[in-house]
Amino acid sequence: MTITFVLMIAVFVATLFIQFWLQRTYARYSRVANSRGVTGEQVARAILDAYGLHNVRVEMVPGALTDHYDPIAKAVRLSEPNFHSPSAAALAVAAHEVGHAIQDAKSYAWLRVRHSILPVANIGSMFGPWIFILGMFMGATGLMNIGIWLFAAAALFQLVTLPVEFDASNRALNILKKMNFLDKSEMDGARAVLTAAAMTYVAALANSLATILHYVAIMTSQRE
């Protein structure tokens, strides 16, 4: 068993732990109602209006933790539980997604970079591993190299995603505090939820980097 394969397993186990941490943290603070009794939808709308983003809609989508901002439709989409819930977790997620809308409105540099490399990253994540595997079975290191570079584009997207997500979370926490939506103890809960969520992006990047190292090790051994 190679060192890179062991690293991949270690990162995979860490990723599972982080996912469990997020789900547990989110579940915990989903049971903590904010003292003002406002819902995720109401907070998202209030923040958007306060920042002059009246054209951005707040919509409900099915599922759990399916919350996202759609820059094309100009819509903050909240999962059904967070849309209706007055919990600290719901407000944290809602404010985070509004943070992305504010980034979009202000042409946040890292968000623009992420959008620009998204098409290549999608191609890389979809076809990179398959091209590498094909090259491996054919003994064609050239194909393997192409697969690695394509997959690296997906890893680059994940790297650029980090400052985008951390900035959105920082904006969310500052706005929730500034607009007095949460008291101190509730703010601690919101911070815990957003920290756990941010770590999932770190884990995704670590997983991709470990995979690339493993691919490189396989290609090197074939050359030898």
Results as ranks from 00 to 15, higher is better:
100 H>M: 14
130 W>P: 01
218 I>L: 11
185 S>A: 15
57 R>P: 04
224 E>H: 09
107 S>W: 06
142 G>Y: 09
172 A>I: 10
9 I>G: 06
159 L>Q: 13
67 D>K: 04
27 A>H: 12
141 T>M: 10
107 S>I: 02
206 A>R: 00
199 M>Y: 01
68 H>A: 09
218 I>V: 13
73 A>D: 14
141 T>Q: 08
145 N>Q: 15
132 F>E: 05
16 L>H: 08
194 L>P: 04
22 L>A: 07
219 M>P: 05
224 E>N: 11
170 N>E: 13
211 T>Y: 04
204 A>N: 06
69 Y>Q: 01
43 V>W: 00
142 G>E: 13
213 L>C: 09
4 T>R: 07
29 Y>S: 01
34 N>A: 07
149 W>V: 04
72 I>E: 15
159 L>Y: 14
102 I>F: 03
40 G>A: 06
3 I>M: 11
18 I>C: 02
11 V>T: 10
161 T>C: 15
150 L>W: 01
109 A>C: 11
103 Q>I: 14
137 F>T: 09
120 V>K: 08
93 V>I: 14
183 D>Y: 07
163 P>D: 15
64 A>E: 15
18 I>W: 00
127 F>S: 10
29 Y>G: 01
61 V>A: 07
35 S>F: 14
161 T>H: 13
48 L>T: 04
67 D>P: 07
8 M>V: 10
75 A>E: 03
167 D>T: 10
29 Y>M: 06
182 L>Q: 02
47 I>G: 01
27 A>S: 15
112 R>K: 09
43 V>S: 00
36 R>P: 12
12 F>A: 14
133 I>S: 10
216 V>S: 03
93 V>K: 02
184 K>G: 06
38 V>D: 05
208 S>E: 00
46 A>V: 07
58 V>E: 05
74 K>N: 11
28 R>W: 11
224 E>G: 12
210 A>H: 03
125 S>G: 15
156 L>H: 12
168 A>T: 07
177 K>D: 13
149 W>D: 05
105 A>Y: 14
102 I>N: 01
83 F>T: 00
16 L>T: 04
166 F>D: 15
60 M>Y: 01
91 L>G: 03
133 I>C: 04
154 A>F: 12
10 A>W: 08
21 W>T: 02
203 A>K: 02
130 W>V: 13
175 I>M: 05
146 I>D: 06
124 G>A: 04
142 G>S: 13
201 Y>V: 02
129 P>K: 10
65 L>I: 08
101 A>M: 11
173 L>P: 00
96 H>E: 11
176 L>F: 07
109 A>W: 12
211 T>L: 07
86 P>Y: 06
194 L>Y: 11
121 A>D: 04
18 I>H: 00
82 N>G: 09
122 N>K: 09
129 P>L: 03
94 A>S: 04
223 R>M: 09
212 I>W: 06
